[in-house]
Amino acid sequence: MKEKTDKKLRWFHRTESKRRFVQVICALLYNCNLTGFAEGKIYQGDFKGFCVPGLNCYSCPGAVAACPLGSLQTALISSKYRFPYYILGVLLLFGVVLGRVICGFLCPFGLIQELLYKIPSRKIKKNRWTSRLSLLKYIILIVFVIGIPLILLVPGFCKFICPAGTLEAGIILVSMNQSLQALAGWLFSWKILILLLLLISAVFIFRSFCRFICPLGAFYSLFHKTAVIGMCIDEDKCTGCNICLKRCQMDIKKVGDRECVQCGDCINHCPANALRFGRK
């Protein structure tokens, strides 16, 4: 029995570290213009015309490609003059193929939050309130990512909320460029405040930004039933013990639902081996 538990634990650590490995590779590949960090300059080459699947600020000095959420907002602003074929197509493609697997594996900001959650402290577990709060991200998607860019012609989420932009780009660029320091006003202070609140909350609440705020996750969650890759339940093996739901730190009601970031941690806790990660 003990041997079986040990074996399972080893498997758990192996899958966990594999996922971490993919997350780290992604974060580095998204931001491999390392000279940009030294110079405080944004890479503006041809590759910037492409989008990465995860949330990674275009203006991060290391970023070699664009953020899909930022691209969507800017494309919506000028959609009157040019229909945003590319970004809508790419987002649909990412959603249909990977869905929220992107959140679990390919998002650098998700990685940062997971690492922060490792800091020993009292943790706030999921409850009725976190479950309700998880709906907030859909409101943010509709208001800040779609509504404000279309109506007020301003990239609402990037401008007023995005903590990834403040962390990866805002702080670095403003601290390294005098001309930008002159431009930084109340909005910059507001965004620093949002960033601090979210980073601190991530120490106590598992992936607080992803669960309550992230509109990109909200968009990808719409594909939870249709995504090609993700968590699968073998209904014949499932005994309905709900251990997977209890062990999961996200606000899921079922493995693979719209709140599931497809991290696969539940596979290791399922006593009936009814869960697997792969092609649905």
């Binding site: 580095l28 491999c32 080459g45």
Partner: peptide, 18 residues
């Protein structure tokens, strides 16, 4: 392999700006 990939990408991208 991974480190070499990152180093290569760094060289590629630092060289293909404007």
């Amino acid at each position: 392999m991974f480190l070499s990939l990152v180093v290569c990408m760094t060289f590629v991208f630092s060289g293909c700006g404007n």
